[in-house]
């Protein structure tokens, strides 16, 4: 049933454009994160709209990456980390005991700060997710998935002759797009991006931003970024974090043109951070 619902969303999404009045894809309520005794996030409340790009900005150590990693429970891999509050994906509590983290991460893909292709061929990198989730019927089907994912990540043309060469042999920007293709291959609803362009040069960054723009039509994207220009370019909604608090959230236009909070204003004006 879940699957049909997702497909339906995907089909209708391009028409509806930016979600207006629709139920948010992800809702976070009173989220607190602790590393051991130290608290890293304080009562964060945030709605992530469907089929749009939400940017999380703020100075280093403000908790934006920590919040992002809560959305697919990546923080589970850190033994001392503890999360309280409630995060819902399509009105389903993702920290619910009955919800499976493996299933969640298949639905909420992630792209990391540094491109991290597996030391395998390009093909195997993409095929990895579908294979472990048992999404593959046969060989031709798998090839189809790989090609489609690479196409969607705008990489197919560049690598179609060498899909069986190691993914680590690509350039930095290509590697990052490979990681995005890898995430797409498991058919997620949401893609989390943790500063995806911080290790890339401007040209590669432009390509990735273009890609994000295209992906928005089918996916809900949450992106953490250091660059305010990037947030402005790619996102429809922006949330500003500061030392563990969510200070201000709103339409990107409004945050950059007319911030309500003094701290947001200072940060955007480049007074700190």
């Amino acid at each position: 049933m879940e699957q049909i619902a997702t497909s339906a969303t995907a089909e209708t999404a391009p028409m509806s454009g930016v979600a207006n009045g629709e139920a948010p894809k992800v809702t976070a309520r009173d989220v607190c994160v602790f590393y051991g005794a130290k608290q890293a996030l304080f009562d964060v409340n945030l709605d992530v709209p469907r089929n749009s790009v939400t940017a999380l900005i703020g100075p280093s150590g403000c908790g934006k990456s920590t919040f992002l990693r809560c959305l697919n429970r990546m923080n589970d891999t850190i033994p001392i980390c503890r999360v309280t509050g409630k995060i819902e994906l399509d009105e389903q509590d993702i920290y619910d005991r009955d919800l499976d983290v493996v299933e969640l991460r298949a639905r909420v893909g992630m792209v990391f700060q540094k491109p991290n292709p597996f030391p395998k061929s390009i093909f195997d990198n993409i095929a990895y997710g579908p294979r472990i989730h048992g999404l593959v019927r046969d060989k031709t089907h798998l090839e189809e998935i790989v090609e489609t994912s690479l196409e969607k990540a705008g990489l197919w043309k560049e690598v179609k002759d060498r899909v069986h060469e190691p993914g680590t042999g690509l350039s930095g920007g290509q590697q990052q797009r490979l990681c995005i293709a890898r995430a797409i291959a498991t058919t997620p609803d949401v893609i989390l991006m943790d500063e995806p362009c911080s290790a890339l040069d401007p040209i590669a960054t432009a390509k990735v931003e273009e890609l994000i723009h295209e992906l928005r039509q089918n996916y809900t994207i949450v992106i953490v970024t250091h660059s305010m220009q990037q947030a402005r370019r790619v996102s429809q909604k922006t949330a500003f974090f500061h030392i563990g608090y969510l200070v201000e959230v709103g339409d990107t236009e409004q945050i950059f043109e007319n911030p309500q909070d003094k701290r947001t204003q200072d940060y955007i004006m480049g007074r700190f951070g």
Partner: peptide, 22 residues
């Protein structure tokens, strides 16, 4: 765009992503 999305999601028919047996 819609066609590629279809192909991708077609991956899941037969065996669903959240198949409990799997």
């Amino acid at each position: 765009m819609a066609t590629t999305q279809d192909t991708l999601h077609a991956a899941a028919d037969g065996r669903k992503l959240n198949d409990p047996a799997m």
